[in-house]
């Protein structure tokens, strides 16, 4: 690009008032989910309140980064920019050890080798200098 900046190679998530702590942690390559102090519910994606009781008394829970593949798909066609040249890629829900599932990509392996139940661990991709997204790779 004209200003010499690298174009992000995937859509950049918008960081907003509710999700800022989550994305700031991702930028440090740390994965967090939330836990309500009032009812104990662990939840993902990030919110400014507990989705069970709207309590604002929650804590940020540092994840182990380990989980298993809950389901996945090998995407072979996606016309949108950022993904047109990435196919085939694996989109998946990973069930974290903390009990919640998150949409992500499985990377660092042959897409054909991904299976449900496969142990995976988090890795981060720096999309911009300020924003990194959590991805998962086969557990070491």
């Amino acid at each position: 690009m004209a200003d010499g900046k690298k174009k992000p190679n995937r859509p950049v998530p918008r960081v907003d008032e509710e999700s800022r702590p989550f994305w700031e942690a991702c930028a440090r390559h740390e994965l967090y989910v939330q836990k309500c102090r009032a009812c104990g519910t662990v939840f993902y994606y990030p919110r400014a309140f507990c989705p069970e009781n709207l309590s604002q008394d929650f804590e940020w829970l540092r994840c182990s980064g380990k989980g298993t593949v809950y389901t996945f798909t090998i995407t072979r066609q996606n016309q949108s920019s950022g993904f047109r040249n990435k196919v085939p890629y694996v989109m998946a829900y990973v069930e974290l050890e903390e009990g919640v599932r998150m949409l992500t990509n499985i990377v660092g392996c042959d897409p054909e080798s991904v299976t449900i139940g496969m142990p995976v661990e988090v890795t981060f991709e720096d999309v911009t200098p300020d924003v990194s997204v959590p991805l998962f790779k086969p557990a070491s």
Partner: peptide
Amino acid sequence: GGGGSGDPPEQFEGCYG
């Protein structure tokens, strides 16, 4: 085609294609 990546929950989806 792709999804959005702005408002939640798309903020946690669009980047994964």
